[in-house]
Amino acid sequence: MPGAYAPFPLTFDRRVSVQMEPIAEGLMVRKAGEDLLDELREAGADATACYQCGRCSAGCPVAEFFDLKPMQVVRLCCYGREDLLIKSRTVWLCASCETCTTRCPNDIDIARVMDVLRSRALRKGQSGTEPKVVAFHKAFLGSIRNHGRVFEIGMLTSYMLRTGDLFSRVGLGLEMFKRGKIKLLPERIKGSGEVRAMFRRKQK
Protein backbone atom coordinates (compact mmCIF):
# COMPACT_ATOMS: atom_id res chain seq x y z
CA MET A 1 0.00 0.00 0.00
CA PRO A 2 1.81 3.15 -1.13
CA GLY A 3 2.41 5.61 1.62
CA ALA A 4 1.58 3.25 4.46
CA TYR A 5 5.07 3.68 5.86
CA ALA A 6 5.42 7.36 5.00
CA PRO A 7 7.92 8.91 7.41
CA PHE A 8 6.27 10.71 10.24
CA PRO A 9 6.17 14.39 9.28
CA LEU A 10 5.72 16.13 12.63
CA THR A 11 8.12 16.83 15.38
CA PHE A 12 7.08 17.64 18.92
CA ASP A 13 5.08 20.80 18.78
CA ARG A 14 6.11 23.46 21.25
CA ARG A 15 2.96 25.49 20.79
CA VAL A 16 0.80 23.12 22.80
CA SER A 17 0.44 24.09 26.39
CA VAL A 18 3.03 22.20 28.35
CA GLN A 19 2.77 21.50 32.03
CA MET A 20 5.50 19.94 34.08
CA GLU A 21 4.92 16.77 36.01
CA PRO A 22 7.25 15.07 38.50
CA ILE A 23 7.84 11.39 37.67
CA ALA A 24 10.66 10.80 40.13
CA GLU A 25 12.46 12.88 42.70
CA GLY A 26 14.00 15.82 40.92
CA LEU A 27 12.90 14.62 37.47
CA MET A 28 10.26 16.57 35.60
CA VAL A 29 8.69 15.71 32.24
CA ARG A 30 6.44 17.53 29.88
CA LYS A 31 2.74 17.05 30.30
CA ALA A 32 0.68 17.77 27.21
CA GLY A 33 -2.60 16.34 26.08
CA GLU A 34 -2.67 14.18 29.19
CA ASP A 35 -6.44 14.15 29.42
CA LEU A 36 -6.65 12.46 26.00
CA LEU A 37 -4.05 9.90 27.03
CA ASP A 38 -5.93 9.33 30.29
CA GLU A 39 -9.22 8.76 28.48
CA LEU A 40 -7.47 6.35 26.12
CA ARG A 41 -5.87 4.45 29.00
CA GLU A 42 -9.23 4.17 30.72
CA ALA A 43 -10.61 2.77 27.46
CA GLY A 44 -7.85 0.16 27.47
CA ALA A 45 -5.73 1.73 24.74
CA ASP A 46 -2.33 2.89 25.95
CA ALA A 47 -1.05 4.98 23.03
CA THR A 48 2.31 5.44 24.73
CA ALA A 49 3.08 1.73 24.24
CA CYS A 50 3.38 2.26 20.46
CA TYR A 51 6.84 1.78 18.94
CA GLN A 52 5.80 2.76 15.38
CA CYS A 53 6.22 -0.65 13.81
CA GLY A 54 3.60 0.22 11.18
CA ARG A 55 1.60 -3.00 11.33
CA CYS A 56 -1.65 -1.11 11.91
CA SER A 57 -1.12 1.12 8.87
CA ALA A 58 0.05 -1.72 6.64
CA GLY A 59 -3.09 -3.80 7.17
CA CYS A 60 -5.66 -0.99 7.18
CA PRO A 61 -8.01 -1.38 4.19
CA VAL A 62 -8.89 2.33 4.11
CA ALA A 63 -5.43 3.83 4.83
CA GLU A 64 -4.95 5.02 1.25
CA PHE A 65 -7.90 7.40 1.75
CA PHE A 66 -6.70 8.67 5.14
CA ASP A 67 -4.96 11.99 5.71
CA LEU A 68 -3.26 10.52 8.79
CA LYS A 69 -2.19 6.86 8.85
CA PRO A 70 -3.28 4.82 11.88
CA MET A 71 0.30 4.78 13.25
CA GLN A 72 0.39 8.57 12.96
CA VAL A 73 -2.90 8.87 14.80
CA VAL A 74 -1.50 6.86 17.70
CA ARG A 75 1.69 8.92 17.78
CA LEU A 76 -0.12 12.24 17.61
CA CYS A 77 -2.07 11.22 20.71
CA CYS A 78 1.27 10.99 22.51
CA TYR A 79 2.36 14.35 21.12
CA GLY A 80 -0.74 16.05 22.49
CA ARG A 81 -1.90 17.06 19.02
CA GLU A 82 -5.58 16.45 19.50
CA ASP A 83 -6.16 19.63 17.49
CA LEU A 84 -4.93 17.87 14.34
CA LEU A 85 -6.64 14.60 15.15
CA ILE A 86 -10.17 15.85 15.60
CA LYS A 87 -9.94 17.81 12.37
CA SER A 88 -8.66 14.83 10.38
CA ARG A 89 -10.63 12.87 7.80
CA THR A 90 -9.12 9.69 9.17
CA VAL A 91 -11.21 9.48 12.31
CA TRP A 92 -14.41 9.57 10.22
CA LEU A 93 -13.18 7.34 7.39
CA CYS A 94 -11.98 4.57 9.70
CA ALA A 95 -14.40 1.72 9.03
CA SER A 96 -13.97 0.11 12.45
CA CYS A 97 -12.86 -3.12 10.82
CA GLU A 98 -10.67 -3.97 13.84
CA THR A 99 -7.73 -5.17 11.72
CA CYS A 100 -5.29 -2.77 13.39
CA THR A 101 -6.48 -3.68 16.89
CA THR A 102 -6.17 -7.38 16.11
CA ARG A 103 -2.61 -7.07 14.84
CA CYS A 104 -0.93 -4.50 17.09
CA PRO A 105 1.98 -6.27 18.82
CA ASN A 106 1.57 -3.98 21.82
CA ASP A 107 -2.15 -4.69 22.26
CA ILE A 108 -3.12 -1.10 21.54
CA ASP A 109 -6.81 -1.02 20.66
CA ILE A 110 -6.41 1.43 17.77
CA ALA A 111 -10.02 1.08 16.60
CA ARG A 112 -11.00 2.22 20.08
CA VAL A 113 -8.58 5.16 19.82
CA MET A 114 -10.58 6.18 16.73
CA ASP A 115 -13.86 5.83 18.68
CA VAL A 116 -12.54 8.02 21.48
CA LEU A 117 -11.32 10.65 19.01
CA ARG A 118 -14.66 10.69 17.17
CA SER A 119 -16.63 11.25 20.35
CA ARG A 120 -14.19 13.95 21.46
CA ALA A 121 -14.46 15.59 18.04
CA LEU A 122 -18.26 15.68 18.36
CA ARG A 123 -18.03 17.01 21.93
CA LYS A 124 -15.80 19.79 20.65
CA GLY A 125 -18.13 20.54 17.74
CA GLN A 126 -15.68 19.26 15.12
CA SER A 127 -17.38 17.23 12.44
CA GLY A 128 -16.84 19.29 9.34
CA THR A 129 -14.31 17.12 7.52
CA GLU A 130 -16.62 14.28 6.46
CA PRO A 131 -20.11 15.71 6.90
CA LYS A 132 -21.92 12.87 5.13
CA VAL A 133 -20.39 10.22 7.36
CA VAL A 134 -21.36 12.20 10.45
CA ALA A 135 -24.87 12.76 9.04
CA PHE A 136 -25.26 9.01 8.61
CA HIS A 137 -24.36 8.28 12.24
CA LYS A 138 -26.72 11.00 13.48
CA ALA A 139 -29.59 9.76 11.32
CA PHE A 140 -28.99 6.18 12.42
CA LEU A 141 -28.89 7.02 16.13
CA GLY A 142 -31.94 9.28 15.76
CA SER A 143 -33.87 6.32 14.41
CA ILE A 144 -32.93 4.16 17.40
CA ARG A 145 -33.88 6.94 19.81
CA ASN A 146 -37.29 7.35 18.16
CA HIS A 147 -38.29 3.71 17.84
CA GLY A 148 -35.87 1.52 19.79
CA ARG A 149 -35.08 -0.21 16.50
CA VAL A 150 -33.82 1.19 13.21
CA PHE A 151 -36.52 2.26 10.77
CA GLU A 152 -34.86 2.42 7.36
CA ILE A 153 -37.15 4.90 5.60
CA GLY A 154 -37.06 7.32 8.52
CA MET A 155 -33.31 6.95 8.82
CA LEU A 156 -32.70 7.49 5.10
CA THR A 157 -35.04 10.49 4.98
CA SER A 158 -33.23 12.07 7.89
CA TYR A 159 -29.88 11.35 6.20
CA MET A 160 -31.06 12.88 2.91
CA LEU A 161 -32.35 15.98 4.65
CA ARG A 162 -29.10 16.40 6.58
CA THR A 163 -26.92 16.02 3.50
CA GLY A 164 -29.13 17.31 0.68
CA ASP A 165 -28.14 14.10 -1.08
CA LEU A 166 -31.62 13.28 -2.34
CA PHE A 167 -31.23 11.19 -5.44
CA SER A 168 -27.97 9.27 -5.57
CA ARG A 169 -29.44 6.05 -4.17
CA VAL A 170 -33.09 6.28 -5.23
CA GLY A 171 -32.76 3.55 -7.87
CA LEU A 172 -31.24 1.14 -5.39
CA GLY A 173 -33.93 2.01 -2.85
CA LEU A 174 -36.65 1.11 -5.36
CA GLU A 175 -35.00 -2.21 -6.16
CA MET A 176 -34.83 -3.01 -2.45
CA PHE A 177 -38.43 -1.96 -1.94
CA LYS A 178 -39.57 -4.30 -4.72
CA ARG A 179 -37.83 -7.15 -2.92
CA GLY A 180 -39.61 -6.51 0.34
CA LYS A 181 -36.48 -5.17 2.02
CA ILE A 182 -37.90 -1.79 3.02
CA LYS A 183 -40.72 -1.61 5.55
CA LEU A 184 -43.28 1.16 5.44
CA LEU A 185 -43.85 1.29 9.19
CA PRO A 186 -41.37 1.24 12.07
CA GLU A 187 -41.34 -1.65 14.55
CA ARG A 188 -42.13 -0.36 18.00
CA ILE A 189 -40.98 -1.86 21.26
CA LYS A 190 -42.36 -1.63 24.79
CA GLY A 191 -38.94 -0.65 26.07
CA SER A 192 -38.70 2.45 23.89
CA GLY A 193 -38.88 4.63 27.02
CA GLU A 194 -35.88 2.79 28.47
CA VAL A 195 -33.99 3.35 25.22
CA ARG A 196 -34.80 7.06 25.20
CA ALA A 197 -33.54 7.31 28.77
CA MET A 198 -30.18 5.91 27.60
CA PHE A 199 -29.95 8.77 25.10
CA ARG A 200 -30.85 11.32 27.78
CA ARG A 201 -28.13 9.93 30.04
CA LYS A 202 -25.76 10.37 27.16
CA GLN A 203 -26.59 14.04 26.73
CA LYS A 204 -25.78 14.94 30.30
Binding site: S96, S119, I144, V150, V195, K202
Partner: peptide
Protein backbone atom coordinates in the same frame (compact mmCIF):
# COMPACT_ATOMS: atom_id res chain seq x y z
CA UNK B 1 -35.26 -6.59 21.96
CA UNK B 2 -33.87 -3.21 20.94
CA UNK B 3 -31.28 -2.17 18.35
CA UNK B 4 -27.72 -3.06 19.40
CA UNK B 5 -26.53 0.42 18.35
CA UNK B 6 -24.40 -0.98 15.49
CA UNK B 7 -21.34 0.98 14.38
CA UNK B 8 -22.89 4.39 14.85
CA UNK B 9 -23.27 4.09 18.62
CA UNK B 10 -19.81 2.80 19.52
CA UNK B 11 -18.14 5.06 16.98
CA UNK B 12 -19.52 8.15 18.69
CA UNK B 13 -20.49 7.24 22.26
CA UNK B 14 -19.09 4.27 24.13
CA UNK B 15 -21.45 4.48 27.11
CA UNK B 16 -24.52 4.55 24.89
Amino acid sequence: WNCCGASSAHMTDHGL
